Amino acid sequence: MIVILVALIAMMWWQSRKAKQQQQERKDFRENLQPGTEIITIGGIIGKVVSVDAEYEEIVIDSEGSLLRFGFNAISREYTRPAFIHDDEVDENGNPLSQDADDEARVPVDNAIESADQNMDTVAEDAAEAVAEDDQAK
């Protein structure tokens, strides 16, 4: 019984210590914000810091021409744009294609689009003929 009690107290102390450390990291981040830093708010708004008012704990960000004012607590973290790789840039195993292979890969796609357009036109004509024949049969 005592061992379980000691274990519970140790876990609570460890969680408390971890929470305080995270809180201190967030506080340091907010205090060290400089104009030009890209950030994301807890609501998902992405923008660059325009000004920081430490006295009132407010920050002004520019999000695509709109100036928005937030409290420090609304700032989630510094924003880093995730890397994006398009499916045309990798093979079926996820390995990057060379630039020459990329150009060659696009030609069949263009041809496939043209043939699909021709097939759609043919299907549309066949459907129109079938409707006309059905109308004549009635």
Rank of each mutant, 00 (worst) to 15 (best):
R77D: 15
D91P: 10
T41P: 05
D126N: 14
E58P: 00
P82K: 08
E55N: 02
G44Q: 09
L68T: 08
V90M: 10
I42R: 13
R30T: 09
S66G: 07
E89V: 06
F84E: 14
T41A: 08
L67F: 13
D62I: 07
M11R: 00
V6G: 02
A74Q: 10
D103I: 12
L68E: 13
D126G: 14
P108S: 05
I42F: 10
V109S: 05
Q136S: 12
W13H: 04
L97Q: 02
D117I: 13
D135M: 08
K27L: 12
Q118A: 14
Q34A: 12
W14G: 00
M120Q: 11
I39P: 09
D88N: 13
D88R: 15
A127W: 09
T37I: 14
G36Y: 07
D121W: 05
D28S: 03
F84G: 05
Y79D: 08
V50Y: 10
D87V: 12
E104G: 04
E31W: 13
I42D: 14
Q118V: 08
E89G: 06
V123Y: 06
I45G: 04
I9M: 08
Q24S: 10
E89N: 11
Y79R: 03
L67E: 15
I2M: 08
H86R: 14
A132M: 04
A10I: 01
F84H: 15
L67Q: 15
E89R: 10
D88W: 14
Q34W: 12
V49N: 03
P82R: 07
V123A: 14
R77G: 03
Q24Y: 10
L5G: 06
A10G: 01
A54D: 02
K48T: 10
E55I: 01
D134S: 06
W14N: 00
E125K: 07
N32I: 06
Q34E: 11
P35R: 10
S16G: 11
M120D: 11
A127Q: 09
I40C: 03
K18Q: 11
Q34K: 15
E78M: 13
E31D: 14
Y56N: 00
Q136M: 12
L5T: 08
Q15N: 10
P35F: 07
F29A: 07
A116T: 07
D135P: 01
D134N: 03
D88T: 08
I46R: 03
R77P: 01
E133Q: 11
P82W: 06
V52F: 00
L97V: 02
P108K: 01
E104N: 07
V49Y: 05
V60M: 10
A128C: 00
D91R: 09
V49T: 03
T80S: 12
